[in-house]
Write a protein that binds this DNA or RNA. Structure first.
Lengths: 340, 340
DNA sequence: GATCGTCTATGAATCGTTTCAACGATTGGG
DNA sequence: CCCAATCGTTGAAACGATTCATAGACGATC
């Protein structure tokens, strides 16, 4: 049974195609009896609107593209949830695309989305500078950077990572720690560099305390790399070992926690840990993890809001760069438990 | 700069629209000089093909819809990865849609996908019986059920959950356990019921051993519920407490593990645990978790293979129900560690 | 120089919906 | 009884790319 089209529906209901279209899009402007007849014909024929044709006519689709670095990362799926919520209200669909850290795949996805004339594209780009995205925007598909700041020729939503690092650092200093560790991925990733800078800033805020930072650099932000960082730490002479470690994300922190525990180092008494992102598994760890929380759903919310504003008021739209404040969630992994 | 269309490109390159189309789709049939001229025009105008128009003409889009229960569940993102791999080779896109366990949302997504005339729909339905999906298929959009068996009027890919339960059960019995526990979500979910049935089957296989099963039923399959199950177990008199527990998924198992440890019960010596799904976090747990592994990527692979077969050989296609065998991965959580 | 074949390029028809000016029918006011 | 206004419906013109039968140009062959 090939899908029936609007013409067949019209014929069956003995009306013109225009009327069928009206039933579908402006039911109030059609006489009740006619409407019924058309609806009946639609049911009988199993008619399903052809989105491609509507879309061709309309010039734009009702889909928003969201290109993320990694669908498997709970952080992004949470942001996506925020996007979806608001998109739903504007009956737009969200197409979730995975670049998997590969600039090539990212470009392919963006191209496809542009060909689909999506309402707009939300994207966390793999690389830092992406002139091609500005071209996409210039050709008429609005682009909003997610989790990345932008110049004022683009919209962006981000979280203040320097502040996040500072919150973590200040907290650890307040707990009396003076030998701090930073476990992070490559500093070429802006988020990582900013978080580290925040940690240093916290120390500067409190200058003259003689606090020190050992940097343990790791190539990726994964659980496995967290474990390796633990090996590094365990290998240090106890006098040089940091007494508190700030990790660039929760996956690292979880790996670190597991491996330290395995080596009979107690968290937080021997080594305190603060992570970043506050993913669901953070509070579920064997020692619940302190973490810097990013307002993930809000981030998604804000991103699509900026996008829709640009779509709806193309002329009077001004690009904005929204920056959220992170928040420190203190749990067991960074508080001395004397009563032990 | 509104997106230029193929006519403007043709005008600029001083050729007909047909020729531009040929450059795009059959470049070998166009003289080199002409081709160059057209390409130049495309670049200069920033021309981007309009997918809606191609699609309208072609009758079908090059997108496959994948509707999952929960994008935040690593299990589904892994299956999705399998789907994407093969889809890429057929230069099809995958649209990942999230039903979030809500039949209403699921239906909306399916409707949208059908209106988009996607190549086909892969879906893990929320409910068990879904006649509406057969109607979708009958109207011409192939549907493949994922992680659910189907009758022979539909294609499906699934994993033998009874076997999975049996593997877990047999393993625990072989380790000498006789008081077993089963922690699971509502038995109305077929997967859960099957896994439980498998556990009982394992006991029957070895009849006369006097093995026993305590069922601890929980409404959801989450980490939190796993913790609550631990409370139940801790509350039992030590003589009745199971010495080994099989969980319907890894999230439950992780929660259980954490809370038992917190109550100073040692895993596996006091209580052994086997989970299900073998998600990434299973091996990363404080006590690495034994788990029944489902061939996730293969599942995705097989699903899209069935779908593409139906698309490409519509007439001679026969619906198939593929069932995979799960595999038990034994780790520390279910092996006595005498050397402790 | 007529005939045939090869290679390129053309342009009109097509996909299915939406939109909108225009039309006929009906109603109410003057 | 006529004129306007209102209401419901119509039909044709878009939207932008693809396809395909056909035409034209050019060489080779007899």
């Amino acid at each position: 049974m090939a899908a029936a089209n609007i013409r067949e529906v019209a014929r069956r209901a003995r009306v013109s195609v225009g009327t069928v279209s009206n039933v579908l899009n402006r039911p109030e402007s059609v006489a009740e009896a006619t409407r019924q007849r058309v609806m009946a014909a639609i049911d009988e024929l199993g008619f399903v609107r052809n989105e491609a044709a509507r879309h061709l006519r309309a010039g734009r689709s009702r889909t928003v593209g969201f290109v993320v670095l990694d669908v498997a990362n709970p952080y992004f799926t949470d942001v996506a949830r925020g996007v979806e919520g608001l998109a739903d209200e504007h009956d737009a669909m969200v197409a979730l695309c995975n670049s998997g850290d590969d600039p090539e795949r990212e470009r392919r996805h963006v191209k496809q989305l542009e060909e689909q004339r999506v309402l707009g594209i939300l994207i966390t780009p793999v690389e830092n500078d992406n002139p091609y995205l500005e071209q996409v925007a210039a050709r008429g598909t609005p682009v909003v950077l997610v989790d990345r700041g932008a110049g004022h020729n683009q919209c962006s939503v981000a979280v203040d990572d320097v502040l996040g690092g500072r919150l973590a650092g200040t907290h650890l200093l307040e707990q009396g720690h003076r030998r701090l560790g930073f476990v992070g991925g490559p500093l070429s990733i802006k988020q990582v560099a900013d978080r580290k800078a925040g940690l240093h800033a916290a120390i500067n805020d409190l200058n003259g305390t003689g606090a020190d930072v050992v940097v343990i650099s790791r190539p990726y932000l994964t659980v496995d790399e967290g474990r390796r960082a633990a090996e590094d730490i365990v290998g240090m002479p106890p006098g040089e070992r940091p007494t508190a470690v700030f990790c660039a994300n929760d996956l690292l922190a979880l790996g670190l926690l597991q491996e330290l525990t395995r080596h009979r180092l107690h968290v937080p008494d021997d080594i305190a840990i603060v992570g970043y992102d506050d993913i669901g598994f953070a509070s579920a760890a064997t020692v619940p993890l302190s973490s810097v929380r990013q307002p993930r759903e809000q981030l998604g919310h804000a991103a699509i809001e900026l996008l829709l504003d640009e779509v709806e008021h193309r002329s009077r739209h001004r690009h904005r760069q929204v920056v959220f404040q992170p928040e420190l969630v203190v749990r067991e992994s960074s508080q001395h438990t004397r009563a032990r």
